[in-house]
Design a protein around this nucleic acid. Structure first.
Lengths: 218, 218
DNA sequence: TCATAATATGACTATCAATCATATAACACT
DNA sequence: AGTGTTATATGATTGATAGTCATATTATGA
């Protein structure tokens, strides 16, 4: 009796449809200016039906945001594979970060115009799922930093958790502010690159190459 | 005929009253959950009267936020006086930052729960005023960094504007995220101190024995 | 064929920012 | 003082929208 399973599949498909519609509208007009009525209208269903699948509008936001974060996470994971030392991997994540946020400016705008509603996500399931994706991203950074300490590319007095937190906060904070200032894509990249070099200068082990000057590539 | 002047004074006084009432309510219940009606009720005036002095609720937010930012700026200016080198001044600003945000957690919560509405402020006069305060704060940091480069405490290849931007974004980003996580005051301070040391490690001029990087401004 | 459960609907409620026609008070000028 | 003009104040009204709920429709299974 595959009824339950079919029902479950149907449910997931419906949820997906709603998320997709919401995403398009959020991208187009922003979260605040999109009404649940509009989302429903786009799918030609009743507003009440949306609430059958998502307990409130914010959960819908978390679902969309999580999609974006998942894409980013996958890009980081790819980037990490292509570098050897922990430090290089950390920098590779940085470059992937720039790549992601340049190529997905819709997600960037949506997420950074609404950071305030993405703490650890709300209390609903979608919020929690997004929080997990955030935690996984953080975990990746911490792991990479730890490796760097082991392989000698990162100074041993670095605190992996704190560094991951500070570095990602810096980048988030910068992107957020630049969003408001409507900085050009080019300026954005320059600023981020500068910040990454700053981090590198701060944490690279003093071993072979003396601390690299900020602003110089590699 | 001091009539115009008295009127002007009266206007300022009224505005002040409204800002103060709004601040108390924003602190107590947050921006979103405070209605303009409540603000008016607290002052025993009609809602319409509020709109006689502020064109919308957001302007009221900017006015309150600006107060907070002014207090902080003054603390930074004090802190700067008590250090000698540019690098020390930069670190002193950092410590003042911690002091301000610990002692004024009401402002901290209000501002960081609402960063999204404080880009460069909105288009109204209060938003613009807040933007000016922000610019002044940034200007102070840039000036201090420039001095550091001149007096040799900060590496000459540092870009003052970019460093100021990256560093303040980092701190903002961290505070914002910690607000959501409800980190304790203690953890908060530790994290911020760590971030400041990271910045110091990245920008402090190398010890005297080491040759200064070529192309130093001075 | 019918009872039960799942899904869908859209009218309705509640909330609130912002507006506006109307009223009152302050002022300037004679 | 008397009068027209401007500034200030009011609160009922509008418009928008998130979320609810009684009711209807459809699917399932005995």
């Amino acid at each position: 009796m595959g009824t339950a399973e079919r029902r479950q599949r149907e449910r997931v498909r419906k949820e997906r449809e709603i998320i997709d519609a919401a995403r398009e509208l959020f991208f187009q007009k922003g979260y605040e200016s999109t009404s649940v009525d509009e989302i429903a209208a786009r799918l030609e269903i009743a507003k009440g039906s949306v609430y059958l699948y998502f307990s409130n509008k914010e959960e819908l936001f978390y679902a969309v945001a999580n999609d974006g974060m998942r894409i980013a996470l996958e890009m980081y994971e790819e980037a990490v594979k292509e570098a050897r030392t922990g430090l290089d991997k950390l920098m590779a994540i940085g470059r992937a970060y720039i790549r992601f946020w340049s190529s997905h400016s819709d997600y960037r705008r949506l997420l950074h115009d609404n950071v305030f509603r993405s703490p650890l996500g709300g209390s609903g399931p979608r919020g929690k799922e997004m929080a997990r994706t955030g935690a996984a991203t953080n975990g990746l950074m911490v792991a990479v930093i730890k490796q760097g300490i082991r392989d000698g590319s990162i100074r041993s007095d670095v605190d992996p958790e704190k560094l991951a937190f500070a570095a990602s906060s810096m980048v988030d904070g910068m992107l957020q502010r630049m969003e408001k200032r409507q900085a050009s894509e080019e300026v954005r990249e320059q600023m981020l690159s500068y910040a990454f070099e700053l981090v590198r200068a701060a944490v690279a082990a003093p071993a072979v190459s003396v601390v690299t000057a900020p602003g110089s590539k590699n």
